[in-house]
């Protein structure tokens, strides 16, 4: 998927803190916690995928069950090919930094992303570069999201660690950063650390 083409979607809603993108193909949203970027003129925005939904194109029309007389799930899509056009997959990403004039900043950019901006999944090199500093964790922990921050932080760190030369060292360093950020809330820290374990 990401190896073939890194483009995963197009922005359909944007704000200072996050953006929503529609996937070009149904069910092809990037994984939870992955680092994506969208480029607009001179500024590239980085986001971490925190939510994905698949629903009907029209908010008022809910899909109905169709598989009663079909042998398999795949048969449903085959017998009703219009379904692929009536449903869509969207994902939301939290803005965690940007790059301007080759310099990487791990805080919010001055302006939000633009609608119809292409969203790409970041290549390994870029993820490694971005994860050299863990200051973005603060944004993840302190934003109110539909997903539990513990889940998101753990998912994102797990993904980043897989691209590191030494995943254990990376996770310990990240754990220590979290221990400082969550110094007053040991239970939350424990929940994240439990999800980081490999």
């Amino acid at each position: 998927m990401a190896e073939l083409t890194s483009r995963v979607g197009e922005i359909i809603e944007a704000s200072t803190t996050d953006f929503v993108a529609q996937c070009y193909q149904l069910y092809q949203s990037p994984p939870l916690g992955s680092l994506v970027k969208t480029t607009d003129e001179s500024v590239a925005l980085y986001g971490i995928v925190y939510h994905a939904t698949t629903a009907s194109l029209e908010p008022g029309r809910r899909p109905i069950a169709r598989g009663r007389d079909e042998a398999s799930e795949a048969e449903i899509y085959r017998s009703s090919p219009q379904l692929l056009k009536l449903l869509r997959t969207e994902f939301s990403a939290l803005v965690v930094g940007y790059r301007e004039k080759e310099k990487l900043y791990r805080y919010l950019p001055a302006k939000p992303a633009r609608i119809h901006g292409f969203v790409h999944l970041c290549p390994a090199d870029e993820v490694r570069e971005f994860s050299q500093s863990l200051s973005f964790l603060n944004i993840l922990l302190n934003t109110h999201l539909p997903v539990a921050a513990e889940e998101l932080v753990a998912a994102s760190l797990r993904q980043m660690s897989q691209l590191c030369a030494d995943p254990h060292v990376f996770l310990v360093a990240a754990g220590k950063e979290l221990a400082i950020l969550l110094s007053g809330d040991f239970n939350r820290l424990k929940a994240i650390l439990g999800r980081l374990r490999q």
Partner: peptide
């Protein structure tokens, strides 16, 4: 892993 993370921080 837990022990290593907590040592020196928490």
């Amino acid at each position: 892993f837990m022990a290593e993370v907590l040592a020196g921080t928490s």
